[in-house]
């Protein structure tokens, strides 16, 4: 069986542009004002990171703020392109970087399910087949035809989470988010994740907390300044 994710010598360099001229006015001013001129700084967010995640495994990415773990997650999700190296994924990847991407406050919960799920590459007829279980999981049956702007933030997160987990991804990429809502709903989320893991889903979890990683992951990578400084296993 091929691995779920292969990350090969991935580096990512950002060019930080201080005082970047986004418009005509700043471009014009920079001719006269030295301190308004654009300064470029190269910043290596990831430095030669490699790992392999087998099907069904769960890997934690630990590190301080700015250590590059979220950048790595964005590269695996295909949102960012690596400067060097490459990433190979096998199976359907569901990034859970933010819950309810694309949610529109004017649309109803039901309409937002379709909008959100289609961003993951699902067709409406596939979403229709899952919509009942999505609504059931979110426990929002009474509110599903109300516009999202009338939802509490907790309700919106519950809906977003329900969509993501009911799309049956092969690989879940989670940025700190594994459970939302009140205690009862959080337990339900964690049970759902555990069930999906048993069914062979691979998981990458970005976290600050060693405890959270120990609870969910078989192994972890510790990142510091874009480099892997420690790995288990």
């Amino acid at each position: 069986m091929p691995p779920a994710i292969i990350v090969e010598h991935v580096s990512k360099e950002f060019i930080l542009r201080h005082n970047r001229a986004m418009g005509l006015k700043t471009r014009f001013l920079s001719v006269f004002h030295k301190n308004k001129r654009e300064k470029r700084e190269h910043f290596l967010a990831l430095d030669d990171v490699s790992f392999t995640l087998e099907k069904g495994e769960a890997l934690g990415l630990l590190g301080h703020n700015g250590s590059g773990k979220s950048t790595l997650l964005q590269i695996i999700a295909g949102i960012l392109q690596p400067s060097k190296g490459r990433v190979i994924t096998n199976g359907r990847v569901a990034p859970l970087i933010q819950l309810g991407v694309g949610f529109n406050p004017e649309l109803t919960g039901y309409e937002n399910i379709f909008l959100n799920a289609s961003l993951y590459g699902f067709l409406n007829k596939e979403i229709k087949r899952r919509v009942k279980s999505i609504i059931e999981f979110s426990e929002l049956e009474h509110f599903i035809d109300a516009p999202l702007k009338n939802y509490s933030s907790g309700m919106q997160m519950r809906l977003g989470f329900s969509v993501a987990v009911n799309l049956q991804p092969d690989i879940l990429l989670a940025d700190e988010i594994l459970a939302v809502g009140d205690q009862a709903f959080q337990d339900k989320c964690l049970n759902k994740i555990a069930e999906m893991r048993r069914n062979g889903m691979s998981l990458i979890l970005v976290s600050h907390s060693q405890e959270q990683v120990n609870m969910f992951c078989d192994a972890f990578l510790l990142l510091d300044h874009g480099q892997v400084v420690h790995r288990t296993k």
Partner: peptide
């Protein structure tokens, strides 16, 4: 082609929001 319903849903969203 896989994302055709995304385009459809985005257009419908814009129409709904416009005449809300």
């Amino acid at each position: 082609w896989q994302y055709r319903d995304l385009v459809r849903n985005l257009v419908i969203k814009d129409l709904k929001v416009r005449y809300q």
